[in-house]
Design a protein around this nucleic acid. Structure first.
Lengths: 213, 213
DNA sequence: GAAATATTATGAACAGTGTTCAGTAAAATT
DNA sequence: AATTTTACTGAACACTGTTCATAATATTTC
């Protein structure tokens, strides 16, 4: 017996899978990715560690589930911007949303973009990897619309999209891994860092704007 | 007793530290970062696991040593390009060298740029973190020289440098983590991927070139 | 040379990890 | 009420990084 038997049984019945995921997400963002153990997750939801394996085959499967959820969250950040009619303004919004997402969920961001394990899992499962492609499709579409308005018209849509993604991803990764703060001369507060990040982003936006013919 | 006592004693005496590092590097690039254990390193050099702790305080210290070495290697890739007089050509060469380094040493690249543990170690030690700053200084200097020749003249040197670093880093990270191959429609061979990477890089170069007034 | 000392290497252990599995408690069905 | 199905768990396995008392080896002193 572990503890608190009767109380929990009524609280949650079959959405244990959800609860495991929530606990994992919480611990991941709290303690970091590697520092979160199955045992810790089990303790948080007041179950035995072995129970978790009745709902998830692996630790990887939990990571993959969070991966999937995180991506949906990112895409939802993008979809909010659909009302912006001007494609370049929408593109700018996407950039800001991307940065915001990375700063607000640094561990989820790392989980999604800087780890290969979840991707391997996706590759093995032959699953669709929906969200990833969808996010990139949104970018492709937006860039394409920009090109109709004479933005970066001399370039292939795909290439420009990859450049944009690379820049945003590189910026966010440098930030979340701490490299930005190490190189930045001003080793000051996080707010200054975010300001630096913003100014780098704005510089990139201006660069893109200058490509308008 | 472990094995092979007499044989090794003559082979190496005090450069055991080097040998540990070489074994670690080999295993890291072979098996991956997390999958390499102290015990495996010990076995490779035919010593007891405990012996390693006589030469390195931590596993982190080993990682940090590899981090430092890897960075020196990258910087050396840059210094070869010093003979190129035209700064923008030199900048292009740096980009290509950066990509080449990332593709040839993907695990070292991840170690350097996608892990935060080594950076924390650096932060705690108050050590110089020489190489990192030096590499960025080289970039800053090159960008500055380009600006004297009317490349991206309307921009702050630091901001442009960060944008360039972000783009290169993002591209390499997307590649080494496998995201590029997942999104790329052609899920074909690695060579096609490298071609895609090159074309993205060339697109970025053209973008930078267009900023010349 | 032998004895005392300083160096270097190690086996065993500790606390932690992911994971499995036989066995138990509870619920559902007959 | 007896039986089957489901849900859960404790204990164990093989692994991880790390420490420490002990043993083997070099080095120095007499």
């Amino acid at each position: 017996m572990h503890m608190g038997v009767a109380e929990r049984k009524e609280r949650h019945k079959e959405d244990l899978k959800r609860e495991i995921l929530d606990a994992a997400k919480l611990l991941f963002t709290e303690k970091g990715l590697e520092a979160t153990s199955i045992r810790a997750i089990a303790e948080k939801i007041e179950y035995s560690p072995a129970t978790i394996y009745l709902y998830y085959k692996d630790k990887n499967e939990i990571v993959h589930a969070l991966h999937s959820e995180g991506f949906k969250l990112l895409v939802s950040h993008f979809e909010v911007l659909n009302h912006i009619s001007h494609p370049f303004e929408r593109l700018k919004g996407m950039g800001r949303a991307y940065i915001q997402f990375a700063l607000q969920n640094p561990d989820i961001y790392k989980l999604i973009f800087n780890m290969e394990e979840p991707l391997k899992h996706v590759a093995n499962c032959f699953e669709e990897w929906d969200e990833g492609d969808r996010a990139f499709d949104i970018l492709l579409k937006t860039v394409g619309e920009c090109q109709k308005l004479d933005y970066f018209k001399d370039f292939a849509t795909e290439q420009v999209s990859f450049v944009i993604w690379s820049t945003m991803h590189g910026l966010c990764t440098l930030r979340t891994t701490g490299h930005l703060s190490h190189v930045a001369a001003a080793k000051a507060s996080d707010q200054d860092l975010d300001q630096l990040m913003s100014s780098i982003f704005e510089t990139f936006v201006i660069i893109l704007e200058k490509l308008k013919t």
